[in-house]
Design a binder for these strands. Structure first.
Length: 313
DNA sequence: AAAACAACCAACCGCCTTATC
DNA sequence: AGATAAGGCGGTTGGTTGTTT
C-alpha cells in the first residue's frame, strides 16, 4: 500500500503563487514562525495550499536574504567544484552559497553552467545535453588533448582539465589498480542511479566499491584509524565519491599524507612528486575555493546528518 | 507579424530519511 | 521494533519569456 498523500489533493490550489498568497505566508511566518509543522501551516495561514508547497515557496522565494539573478564567477567555481566532487547534492552545494537555494542552483546548472562547462571542454555536440553529466564528460574526454594524463602508465590515471579561456577547469583522478582492468563510469546511468550505487565493477565483475574492504587498513601502527581517513572515507561513502575524488576531499580537509596511505592500500598512489599535479590538483584554484568555502562556517556537510554514516576503517 | 523553437525557472511529484508514538 | 507522519531532497514538468526563422 502506498503512502497517504500529504494533503487533500482535491482541495489544494496548485500552480503559481499569487502576491496575496505570498504576503499571507510571509507575514504569518515572520510573525509566528512555521511552528515546526508545515502540513498544518496552510490552514493556520488561511491558504488552500499543500504544506509542502508552502515550505518550498518560503525556502525558495520568500525567506529573507534570498539572492536571485546572476551567479558570480566565484559561485560558478564553487558549484562546478562541488558538483565534480559530490555530484548533484544541490542542498549541500547550496549550503556553500549563502542566499542561493538548491532549486536555483539546480536550475542554473541544468540550464547554463553545464553547457558552459561543456563548451569549455569542447565536447562533442552530438550528445543531448540532458545525457551529459560530469562523469560522462570524464569518460568521453580522458583521451582529449585538453586532458593531461598525468601517468601514462595508466596505473592511476589522473586527469585534469583547464578551459580554453582559463575560466573553467575540471580535474579528476581515477585511482584504480589498473585502468585497463576497470570500467568505472561504464555507463552514466549506472553511476547515477541510486539503486545501483557502489556498482563500479572491474572487468572480472567484482565490485569496485569505494569505502569498502580495499580501504580498510589504517595508517597508525596500532591499527587505529586516523580521523582524516575516517572523514574522507565517510565523505566519499556518504557522497558516493569515486576514489579519485578523495583528492579533492583531502585537499579540503588537509592531510595529504593520510590520503596517500589510503590510496596505497587500494592498489596504488600516483606520486605527487612527479610534479605534474603542481600545487593544485584542481586547476581552477582549489585554494581559492577552499577559502571561499571556509568563509562559511557550516562547511559542506550537516554533521547531524552525516555523523551516523561515518565508516571506520 | 507570426510561428517555431529554445531557454528559463517556479512548482510539483515521489522517494528516502528522520522523528515520533 | 514497527508503523506512521512529516521533512527534505533531487528529478522532472510545464508555463512563460525570449530568440530565431
Amino acid at each position: 500500500m502506498g503512502r497517504a498523500p500529504c494533503c487533500d489533493k482535491a482541495n489544494v490550489k496548485k500552480g503559481p503563487w499569487s502576491p496575496e498568497e505570498d504576503a499571507k505566508l510571509k507575514e504569518y511566518i515572520e510573525k509566528y514562525g512555521t511552528g515546526g509543522n508545515w502540513i498544518a501551516l496552510p490552514q493556520k495561514v488561511g491558504l488552500k495550499r499543500c504544506g509542502k508547497s508552502c515550505r518550498l515557496r518560503w525556502l525558495n522565494y520568500l525567506r529573507p536574504n534570498i539572492k536571485h539573478g546572476q551567479f558570480s564567477a566565484a559561485e560558478d567555481k564553487i558549484i562546478c567544484s562541488l558538483f565534480t566532487s559530490i555530484g548533484s547534492r544541490w542542498s549541500i552545494i547550496a549550503s556553500q552559497l549563502p542566499g542561493r537555494t538548491d532549486n536555483d542552483i539546480k536550475n542554473y546548472w541544468n540550464t547554463k553552467l553545464k553547457k558552459k562547462m561543456m563548451a569549455n571542454m569542447n565536447l562533442s555536440p552530438q550528445r543531448k545535453p540532458q545525457q551529459i553529466t560530469l562523469l560522462s564528460i570524464l569518460q568521453s574526454t580522458t583521451s582529449s588533448s585538453h586532458f593531461r594524463d598525468i601517468n601514462n602508465s595508466c596505473h592511476h590515471p589522473i586527469v585534469s582539465y583547464t578551459g580554453h579561456d582559463g575560466s573553467f577547469s575540471y580535474s579528476s583522478s581515477l585511482v584504480s589498480g589498473n585502468s585497463a582492468d576497470y570500467s568505472i563510469f561504464q555507463t552514466q546511468e549506472s553511476v547515477m542511479d541510486p539503486s545501483q550505487k557502489h556498482q563500479f565493477k572491474d572487468r572480472n565483475n567484482s565490485m569496485f566499491a569505494y569505502g569498502g574492504e580495499a580501504a580498510t587498513s589504517c595508517s597508525s601502527s596500532d591499527g587505529s584509524c586516523n580521523n582524516n581517513n575516517q572523514i574522507i572515507s565517510h565523505v566519499m561513502e556518504h557522497h558516493e565519491l569515486g576514489y579519485g575524488d578523495a583528492t579533492f576531499v583531502n585537499q579540503l580537509y588537509g592531510g595529504v599524507e593520510d590520503t596517500r596511505e589510503m590510496f596505497s592500500n587500494i592498489g596504488g598512489w600516483t606520486e605527487k612528486q612527479n610534479g605534474l599535479w603542481g600545487e593544485n590538483p584542481l586547476d581552477y584554484g582549489l585554494e581559492e575555493i577552499k577559502q571561499l568555502i571556509s568563509t562559511n562556517n557550516n562547511f559542506l556537510f550537516d554533521d547531524k546528518k552525516t555523523d551516523e554514516r561515518v565508516m571506520y576503517y
